[in-house]
């Protein structure tokens, strides 16, 4: 319990650091937002008025605190290019991105655990073949290349969906889910391959440990040992990897949303980067980093629950 408090504390510190860095980077480098909004032809009077209106005359620490507070009050400023409150803009994109991330994560867990944990003997050649093919894929194909491949095969050749035709938000939830399945698969496949490989080498190295031999000496069958000892040990060691997987999917999602024209946070981020819409960029970056750090913290907590040795380390 005390560890949980500490971990939440360090999570908060990391997030604060991320927020400070992001804010500092954009407020220092990006120059004067008022100038940007009004263009070079603006009169000095209008510039001064807008600066006052945007609160740019306050000292940087004060502006930072106001901005940070915005994550709780919902006032994150106004987008340069959409002329719309940033929080409203992010809020409208967030559900799609969260759904996509969750779907992909679910697919990864659903496929990699059976493939990675079923011993190579069982299931025979078919599973072995599927595994080998996945391994090859993981070596080369990044999600966005895979995404293009999947849009071609599933979209153009098989006509399972129309690439680029994401349903208007809110009108067709089932259609949205159906469409999101394809980007989710593109993100999941390389990661499934990596997870399977990680799990298999985990099982392999656990099977060579003495405690497996000791259990066999007590008369335990291979299946019993796998179920009772090996799986627990492998799962405990794979929790951290799953946390990293979450981080990877968030990154991959930014690109994949572009590939499949999914109107989510990633797509908004890219277009804002291209148009230098800094209020949107900095808020979106912090939001995505928050999600990644949250996954890391959750992984750490689960890891401790699963492994008594870690609990002991922190007691000392």
């Amino acid at each position: 319990m005390r560890y949980a408090v500490k971990r939440v504390g360090s999570f908060a510190v990391t997030m604060l650091l991320v927020a400070v860095l992001t804010f500092a980077a954009f407020s220092v480098v990006s120059g004067d937002p008022a100038q940007r909004l009004l263009g070079t032809s603006a009169t000095p009077e209008r510039l001064a008025a807008l600066r006052e209106e945007l609160g740019l005359n306050a000292p940087a620490p004060e502006r930072f605190l106001k901005w940070l507070g915005g994550f709780f009050t919902g006032d994150l400023g106004v987008s340069f290019s959409y002329k719309q409150p940033v929080s409203e803009l992010l809020g409208s994109k967030l559900p799609v991105t969260l759904t996509l991330t969750a779907m992909s994560f679910l697919l990864i867990v659903l496929f990699s655990f059976p493939l990675g944990l079923i011993p190579s003997g069982a299931g025979g050649r078919f599973i072995g073949g599927v595994r080998a093919a996945f391994n090859q894929l993981s070596m080369a194909a990044p999600p966005f290349v895979l995404g293009v491949g999947i849009s071609w095969i599933c979209g153009v050749v098989l006509r399972m969906f129309t690439p680029g035709a994401f349903p208007d938000p809110g009108t067709d939830p089932a259609g949205e889910l159906r469409y999101l399945l394809f980007p989710a698969v593109s993100m999941a496949v390389p990661r499934v391959a990596m997870t399977v490989r990680m799990l298999r080498s985990g099982v392999e190295s656990e099977l060579h440990k003495d405690y497996v031999r000791a259990a066999a000496a007590r008369g335990a069958s291979g299946a019993f040992i796998l179920r009772r000892h090996v799986l627990r040990n492998v799962l405990a060691s794979s929790v951290t990897f799953l946390g990293q997987t979450m981080a990877e999917i968030v990154g991959a999602g930014v690109v994949i949303e572009q590939v499949f024209a999914v109107p989510g946070l990633g797509r908004l981020l890219i277009s804002s980067v291209l148009t230098r819409d800094y209020p949107v960029v900095q808020a979106a970056v912090v939001l995505l980093a928050f999600w990644v750090c949250l996954a890391g913290a959750a992984a750490d907590l689960v890891n401790r629950l699963a492994d008594p040795r870690l609990r002991a380390e922190h007691k000392a």
Binding site: F26, V29, A247, G251, A252, L269, A289
Partner: peptide
Amino acid sequence: NDAVTAFPAVLLALVLMSLFS
């Protein structure tokens, strides 16, 4: 190092790209 790896690589690259004018 930990703080930097808290960002997914794509995200970090995007931020840096948008900073370098």
